[in-house]
Design a protein around this nucleic acid. Structure first.
Length: 312
DNA sequence: ATGGACACCTGTGGGC
DNA sequence: TGCCCACAGGTGTCCA
């Protein structure tokens, strides 16, 4: 489900509530949600209990929380709790005793800096998402690990990234995003532009919704080879990408159903702004031609066959 | 390098 | 009512 705007909405909801909170309780209801944690359930619990959450950082669709281990376990380990929402993950913040959320897989109880007790609930229908504890390492470029809304400046974890997310490149909302590096990658790729936009090692944060929306705005066909797009046109596409992601963040992301929720269990409002995704058969808002859906890479691609033509 | 298939999963909605 | 199929905001891996 979630792409950058949805994950950022979750990050922005978590950060003020649980930064500096101490983990007091960990309940793993379905160990499949820990499949990316190599140490198993007990190791996961023991590492977290007593640790402090130092911040909430995001790069692309990955979220992580650097951990301050209790004094008796503080060694050379620099660890973070890493979360990915997959297709259907949610991170909810509930007061203890709040009614059970269906499909809850992991509950982490924390005591906030204010003394308030909060339950972090990881809910995930399809279990493509995960929680894991991972080692932090230096970023490839030595700059910040990801986006944390300015929090974490000067902290030991600022320029670190979890090993499991180190292959993810910076996203268009990252202050250190390097547009020229992305344009250079486009120029070397013969693959269709949508495939390239979805490749988290070229630029990160884009998924099926925002890829279709960006291509609609730029009037590009999803299969147009990336290297065949002129640099000015590619720049224009990336500006649309950045704008759409930023606008969607302001709307709290895109919700169609029960799959995407913010930390309070509420949906986002960007769905009303969609022009291509989920618009199959409806008239294109530019030219009136019906939006088409084609099966592509085991998923759907939505586009206007009239204003997004494949060019030779 | 590149494109395709598929695996990981559950739930919902449409057609019959 | 049930059954079967298509479909869903992601990622990773294996194979031609």
């Amino acid at each position: 489900m979630p792409e950058l705007p949805e994950v950022e909405t979750v990050r922005a909801g978590l950060a003020p509530a649980i930064t500096e909170a101490i983990i007091t309780r960990v309940e793993v209801l379905d160990s499949r949600s820990l499949k990316r944690h190599p140490g198993g359930v007990e190791d996961f619990r023991q590492t977290l209990i007593g640790s402090k959450i130092l911040g909430v950082v995001r790069r692309g669709k990955f979220l992580w929380m650097p951990l301050g281990l209790p004094a008796d376990r503080a060694g050379e380990k620099q660890l973070a709790l890493v979360g990915h929402l997959g297709m259907s993950g949610q991170m909810l913040l509930r007061t203890p005793g709040f009614e059970a959320d269906k499909l809850t897989r992991v509950i982490i109880g924390v005591k906030a800096a204010t003394g308030e007790v909060v339950e972090f609930r990881f809910v995930d229908q399809r279990i493509f998402g995960s929680l894991a504890i991972d080692q932090l390492e230096q970023t490839a470029d030595g700059a910040s690990g990801g986006f944390s809304a300015g929090v974490g400046q000067g902290q030991w974890w600022q320029n670190l990234i979890p090993s499991s997310a180190a292959h993810i490149t910076r996203d268009p909302l990252d202050p250190n995003f390097d547009i020229n590096a992305v344009l250079a990658k486009f120029a070397k790729k013969n693959s269709g532009i949508k495939r390239v936009l979805l490749d988290q090692q070229t630029l990160s944060g884009i998924g099926n919704i925002y890829a279709d929306e960006s291509l609609w705005r730029a009037k590009l066909h999803y299969d147009q080879p990336a290297c065949s797009i002129s640099t000015p046109k590619a720049k224009e596409l990336l500006e649309h990408v950045r704008q759409i992601l930023a606008d969607a963040v302001l709307e709290g992301g895109t919700s169609f159903d029960e799959q995407y929720k913010n930390v309070n269990g509420e949906g986002g409002y960007f769905a009303v702004s969609l022009n291509a995704y989920a618009m199959t058969g409806l008239p294109c808002k530019r030219c009136g031609h019906p939006i088409k859906r084609e099966t592509w890479m085991n998923r759907g691609s939505h586009f206007c066959p009239n204003c997004q033509k494949l060019k030779a």
